[in-house]
Design a protein around this nucleic acid. Structure first.
Length: 422
RNA sequence: CGGGGCGUAGUAUACCGGUAGUACGCUUGCUUUGGGAGCAAGUAGACCGAGUUCGAUUCUCGGCGCCCCGACCA
């Protein structure tokens, strides 16, 4: 991708109406555009990051056997009335609208009811189960107060997965596999060490639910962690009984601020019973499906990565989610020889399937470096008169600033060694 | 929803009861070219409405928008 072709602009100053680091840096770097409070558009670079996160999630969900779908944003009132969740008193984040033809629709803030209802068309027998389905959906929630940049918006992308099982045992197996799959996702995007499967309040069907909480100063939640045992308890369920049950003492736990990046629920059979999602078991007995729900806040995750991986100069993307892998900077300064050399390097990288942002713009070195640091691509290559005189290309790691001159003959090898996604 | 704050060029800001200045950006020219260049000439602005006043961007009220703390977050 040529930077001269990229329509987005970087900015020196953060907009005054953003305080959250994630929004400030993402807007300054041209990754996102603020449409209104809590509502952001994703621009070319931002979309690439988003798609990379989705790719990782998709791979891990697929490995679990989940099939991908996309459900609708518009939802039926009657469905939610069945489970008593249409009322604004019960669910206070509804966006609702009128159909011109008559009737009322809701904008999806969750898809549990619609998917359970839809599954009635596809589930008849125990032979049809289990079924695992997931989607990447834009959720619409009329939050009273949007905040923290893209981490708590009124419109955001979520990966939500649903499991439909024959009973508790089958459900439990998938539930445990999902915990592991989710942790693989968080490890791959670079926050594995700081993300804890956390005991949280369970709701109607189980004593606890599990949240995936990532340590970050700007987090909204407070949890207590035992780093050696990799065990964590949400403040909301921290009491003597919980401590006893989990075999830890209050003194062993460390209090930390966290952001919730994922959440999984065991629904039992309640929702299926309400909505009539049943199957015939081996004996021909009509039995409600055992449901589970599993979410990862994709856009929130992106915001969290910026919060965690940035310095005073800008973003430092983890390799797997970086918008592109290499930032090739041409410091031609009017020299057509340098220009040609940079073009050659660009083509060389492309031939090897390396994703490159090529700064071929006619601007000064300082501006190019500042932009490069702000955008935060993991590896920077500089082609200049200086590097050519020294017989190579200058390679700099964004994360630690380590820099070295690499002869072109070794370039591809060195890039791949640096852990670049190809 | 309770509390607090803020709305001035594209962006960030300053001043002021007598229609607004700076920096960056953008346009043109020349110079410059390894860390957001220099000179010159341009471009561009008071959220909306009502009230007070001879006169409102400034004061008052209302609306709208934005931010923060709290509450909320199946």
């Amino acid at each position: 991708m040529r930077q001269s072709h990229l329509f987005t602009k970087t900015r020196k100053t953060a907009p005054k109406d953003e305080v959250a680091k994630n929004a400030q840096l993402l807007i300054r770097g041209g990754f996102i555009h603020k449409e209104m409070a809590g509502v952001y558009s994703y621009l070319p670079l931002g979309l690439r990051v988003l798609e990379n996160i989705k790719r990782i999630v998709r791979e891990e969900m697929s490995a679990l056997g989940a099939q991908e779908i996309i459900m609708t944003a518009l939802q039926r009132k009657e469905l939610w009335e069945t489970t008593s969740r249409w009322s604004d008193e019960v669910v206070d984040v509804w966006f609702k609208s009128q159909l011109r033809a008559g009737g009322e629709v809701g904008f999806g803030w969750s898809h549990e009811e619609p998917i359970a209802d839809m599954m009635r068309s596809h589930v008849d027998s125990f032979r049809d189960l289990p079924i695992f389905v997931h989607q990447f959906q834009t959720k619409l929630r009329n939050e009273l107060r949007a905040k923290s940049g893209i981490m708590r918006g009124r419109e955001f992308v979520m990966n939500d997965m649903y499991s439909f099982c024959r009973g508790e045992e089958e459900h439990a197996r998938f539930y445990d596999q999902t915990i592991e799959a989710y942790m693989r996702v968080f490890t791959r995007v670079g926050i594995g060490e700081d993300t804890f499967v956390t005991f949280a309040s369970g709701g109607a069907f189980t004593k606890f639910s599990h949240e995936f909480q990532t340590v970050t100063e700007t987090g909204e939640d407070v949890i207590y962690v035992h780093r050696e045992k990799r065990l964590a308890i949400n403040e909301e369920v921290l009491n003597d009984e919980t401590l006893r049950e989990l075999g830890v003492t209050r003194e062993e736990l460390q209090k930390v601020n966290t952001a919730e990046v994922g959440n999984i629920f065991n629904f039992g059979t309640q929702k299926s019973e309400d909505l009539g999602l049943v199957f015939k078991d081996e004996k021909g007995v009509s039995t409600p499906v055992w449901m589970g729900s599993y979410g990862i806040g994709v856009t929130r995750l992106m915001g969290l990565l910026v919060e965690k991986f940035s310095d005073e100069k800008g973003i430092v993307w983890p390799e797997e989610v970086a918008p592109l892998s290499v930032h090739l900077v041409s410091l031609a300064g009017g020299s057509s020889e340098v220009e040609k050399e940079a073009e050659r390097v660009y083509e060389l990288l492309a031939e090897h399937g390396i994703e490159v942002l090529f700064d071929d713009r006619d601007v000064r070195a300082g501006e190019k470096f500042a932009d490069s640091d702000l955008i935060g691509i993991p590896l920077r290559l500089v082609v200049s008169e200086k590097s050519m005189a020294e017989g190579g290309v200058e390679m700099t790691t964004r994360a630690n600033g380590a820099s070295s001159l690499v002869p072109e003959s070794n370039l591809i090898e060195r890039i791949k060694k640096a852990g670049v996604r190809v």
